[in-house]
């Protein structure tokens, strides 16, 4: 416990965000044994370090006159967790993802990624933060003039990986997402599902600790979507924390993972192994509802006072 308080993390170490593949998966949080977290009170510093993504009372205001996009959000997503972010358009899902990537600054409150308050990351270190985070979008965002291989290799080239490392890694990742033998196709020669697999391969090729997916199945039919979910699940199994914003109720109901529901910038539900729509009628404030939702092993929205609940 003391070690954690004595060593405040000042800079994001990209290694702490990265997952090393292989039999001995590297979980940086092993330094902070889970047993301790279950048995006793954790110091705040330690909780900050253990969580992969942690929002502390985060408010984001785009327009002073309108309501905040995010309103005093407290949320903690642990390393290796798989969480759905659900809610209507405009509920704050995309803002949440943007804050994690430091595309925007929180108006107030603190966002921690891998134990580091992103507000303290200097602009020239932001790329290092982003190397630890993979992102997938609804519209794939592939480069149309590049082949599948080149699209995935691009993500490695631009951060200066050597040609031999690229040659070794890309086929491996393409295999993980189920695109073996399609290295030399162009994006327009692929189906939507396959294109999204390429995008996922690109997002995880640098072994990020976090994968953010912004409605990755929004353009896909249900069967293809389930295939994509299989890929994301596999990546999650390998130790990557996955946060997926989605409207797709079938998928959420099928996966039975943690569900965080946002409405008008407020978390109105945070359940583990949950369904797209809560089985409990949603009335009134969120905090009381969550307490009534009968969660077993989900982290509560992290307010320092509520930590004993875990």
């Amino acid at each position: 416990m003391k070690t954690a308080t004595r060593q405040p993390v000042r800079a994001v170490d990209p290694e702490s965000l990265r997952i090393v593949e292989g039999p001995g998966l590297y979980f940086p949080h092993h330094e902070f044994p889970c047993t301790g977290s279950r048995t006793g009170q954790l110091s705040r510093d330690r909780r900050v370090l253990r969580a992969m993504i942690r929002f502390e009372n985060v408010t984001k205001v785009y327009d002073q006159k309108a309501r905040p996009a995010l309103d005093a959000i407290n949320l903690e997503i642990d390393r290796g967790e798989f969480a759905f972010l659900v809610g209507a358009s405009g509920s704050g899902k995309s803002t949440f993802l943007r804050l994690v990537l430091k595309e925007d600054r929180a108006s107030s409150g603190a966002v921690y990624v891998a134990g580091q308050n992103v507000a303290t990351i200097s602009s020239w270190r932001v790329p290092r933060l982003r190397r630890g985070i993979g992102v997938v979008f609804q519209d794939f965002r592939l480069l149309p003039q590049k082949t599948v291989f080149a699209n995935v290799a691009f993500a490695m080239q631009v951060i200066g990986k050597s040609r031999s490392v690229i040659r070794d890694t890309v086929p491996e990742v393409l295999k993980t997402v189920g695109l073996e033998g399609k290295e030399h196709r162009f994006p327009h020669e692929l189906s939507g599902g396959e294109q999204q697999r390429v995008a996922i391969a690109r997002a995880v090729v640098n072994r990020p600790g976090i994968l953010l997916a912004d409605e990755p199945t929004g353009n896909l039919d249900p069967t293809t979507s389930m295939g994509i979910m299989g890929v994301l699940d596999k990546i999650n199994q390998n130790g990557t924390t996955v946060v997926m914003a989605t409207h797709d109720d079938d998928i959420v109901n099928e996966m039975r993972k943690r569900v965080v529901e946002l409405r008008n910038g407020v978390i109105i539900r945070d359940e583990s192994k949950a369904l797209y729509t809560s089985m409990i009628p949603v009335v009134g404030a969120s905090r009381r509802l969550k307490d009534a939702s009968g969660r077993e092993d989900t982290a509560p929205p992290a307010t320092p006072g509520s930590e004993g609940a875990r």
Partner: peptide, 10 residues
């Protein structure tokens, strides 16, 4: 845009 997302330096 992609370069930014995958953490290419400035």
């Amino acid at each position: 845009g992609i370069m930014r997302l995958v953490g290419a330096s400035k």
